[in-house]
Structure formats: structure tokens, C-alpha cells
């Protein structure tokens, strides 16, 4: 008797508990996510009559293909930069005693607590033509050097890694903390130097975290909208900006919807890959 009542749910609401507990969110998700999404899909397919014409046009549109290539280039660049900057930070954090690590993690998470809009303008103040960095460079070089770091590809990547880094760091940190320190001690006693230990022991054993971090980063950056709009140049349009362009500039809602659906499909594919990597991890670690 006791065990059966436990099995039906801790809430004590009996067999209805699942429905009662999940209903509010289900209704909300249906209203704000599934319904508009369905509408978007419908708009992309229905242009006076049901057809795939919008998708066919998308596939042959040089603009879309160029923007898609841009998107992948920016996403992959941002992810790689985030990996190169994030890995050493994760290694440093993993080496800290737990209390100090917690304090440092707060600093890693700090960007999350600031609006992306505020951060973007702050970046302009730091990296812009009249920004802190260029003023310092100009002062040091006697006005010879002024690096264009905003409103171009560099600006987009700078803005993006600001957002991407915490995900990369946390993901790699998880793998590094799971790494048995005695493996490193064992490698040391066998005579291995720090570089060999990194390449042969630490890096391979942290690969699950690296792969997960990379996939999260690519997935997040592929849908970026505000950052390229604010910090990029004309050439740095990403797919999300193209949707905006069709929606507000040309008012071609069918093309906008088809573009949005294509972006969603690509992101979904990446998320599915992410899920497989994670599932493979938990299976492989056993």
C-alpha cells in the first residue's frame, strides 16, 4: 500500500498529479511557442496556395546562401575563439581550491547578469575607434595605430564570445573536475612533462566537455541576432538578421518564415547532435 502510493507521486495527488502539475506550463508553451511556431510554418508554406515555393527560392537565393555561409563562419570562428580562451580559464579554475573556485565562477557568470544590449554598447566604448583600447594604442604609437575592431567581423566575434565563454568554460570545467588527479600524478612519476601530460592525458580525458561546449556554442551563436546587428558591419549579416530584414524591410513574410524555419531546422539538427554526444558520454563512462 505504502509503496503504491509512493509510486503514484510524492505530491499525494494520485494519478492526476502529472496532469495537474504539468498543465499550466503546457498551456503556456502552447500559447507562446507551439502556436506561433505552427503559424510560422504555415506562413512559409501557404502563399495563396500550399507550396514549397518559398523554400525553393531560398535554396536558389544568393543572398540567403551568402548569409548562411556568413552565419556558419561567424559561429565557428566565435566558437573556436571561445574554446581557445575558455580552455585555459577552465584549467585554471579546476586547479583552484573549491572555495576560491566558487568565487571565480561568480566572475565567469557575471556577463549573464548584464543585458546583452548594455554589454554591446560597453564593448563599443572599449573597442571602438575612439574606445579605450584604441586611445591607448594611439597614445603609445603616437597616433600611428588605430585598429578597426567594431562594426566588422572582429566586433561580432568579440561580442559573441562575451556571451559564449561561460558555456564553454563550464562545460570544460565539468570534464576537468571529473578527471582523477592521480592520473596526472601517475603520468608525472612515469617521467612525463607538463606538455605531454596535457596532450596525452588531460586533453583526451576532457574531450567530452570540449565537444559539448563546442556544440552548445555553435548552436547558440548560429541564432545570434542582436550582436551582429549592433557590432557587425554590412557584410556580417546572419540568418536571424535576414529574417528581420524580410519581416520589416521587404515585408515578405513567406520568405521570412521559410528562413526562420530553415534556421530552426539547422539549430534542431545541432541540438540533436548535442544530445547524442551527451548520451554517448553517459553510456561510455559506465
Amino acid at each position: 500500500m505504502t509503496s503504491s502510493s509512493t509510486a503514484s507521486g510524492a505530491s499525494g495527488l494520485g494519478p492526476w498529479s502529472a496532469i495537474v502539475l504539468l498543465a499550466p506550463l503546457t498551456v503556456l508553451m502552447f500559447a507562446i511557442l507551439l502556436y506561433p511556431l505552427g503559424l510560422t510554418l504555415w506562413t512559409s508554406l501557404y502563399d495563396g496556395q500550399l507550396s514549397l515555393r518559398a523554400y525553393a527560392e531560398l535554396a536558389s537565393s544568393t543572398l540567403f546562401l551568402k548569409v548562411l555561409r556568413n552565419t556558419f563562419e561567424i559561429a565557428i570562428t566565435g566558437t573556436l575563439v571561445s574554446l581557445v580562451f575558455g580552455y585555459p580559464v577552465a584549467m585554471h579554475l579546476a586547479a583552484q581550491p573549491p572555495r576560491r573556485r566558487t568565487a571565480c565562477l561568480v566572475m565567469v557568470m557575471l556577463p549573464f547578469w548584464t543585458s546583452i544590449l548594455v554589454k554591446s554598447f560597453a564593448l563599443v566604448a572599449v573597442f571602438g575607434n575612439q574606445g579605450l583600447v584604441n586611445q591607448l594604442l594611439g597614445f603609445l604609437s603616437g597616433g600611428q595605430i588605430n585598429l578597426p575592431m567594431m562594426f566588422n567581423r572582429v566586433g561580432v566575434v568579440l561580442g559573441m564570445i562575451n556571451f559564449l565563454l561561460p558555456f564553454m568554460i563550464l562545460s570544460i570545467l565539468g570534464s576537468l573536475l571529473a578527471l582523477d588527479r592521480r592520473l596526472i600524478l601517475a603520468a608525472e612519476t612515469m617521467g612525463a612533462g607538463p606538455l605531454r601530460i596535457f596532450w596525452k592525458v588531460i586533453l583526451p580525458l576532457s574531450m567530452p566537455g570540449v565537444v559539448a561546449g563546442v556544440l552548445i556554442n555553435v548552436t547558440l551563436s548560429i541564432g545570434m541576432y542582436i550582436t551582429p546587428a549592433l557590432l557587425g558591419g554590412r557584410q556580417d549579416m546572419m540568418v536571424a538578421n535576414l529574417v528581420d530584414f524580410y519581416t520589416r524591410q521587404t515585408l515578405d513574410w513567406t520568405a521570412a518564415s521559410a528562413t526562420a524555419v530553415a534556421l530552426l531546422a539547422i539549430s534542431g539538427l545541432l541540438v540533436a547532435m548535442l544530445g547524442r554526444v551527451r548520451g554517448g558520454l553517459s553510456g561510455g563512462a559506465a
Binding site: L183, A186, K200, L205
Partner: peptide, 30 residues
């Protein structure tokens, strides 16, 4: 002297074998 230059061998209670290497690769490592 740092550990890796003392020319020692060490056997650990939890074995400390590299989980990503085969038995052969583990023994080949040193």
C-alpha cells in the same frame, strides 16, 4: 627535483590507469 625527473615508478591504490588508453597503450606510455 620535480616528480617527473626522479626516475621512479609508483603503484596507486586505485590503479590510476589511463581510462582512454588500452592496456597496451597504458604500459607503452612510460
Amino acid at each position: 627535483l620535480p616528480t617527473n625527473r626522479r626516475g621512479l615508478g609508483m603503484v596507486f591504490q586505485n590503479y590510476a590507469l589511463m581510462p582512454h588508453m588500452t592496456v597496451f597503450e597504458n604500459i607503452a606510455f612510460p
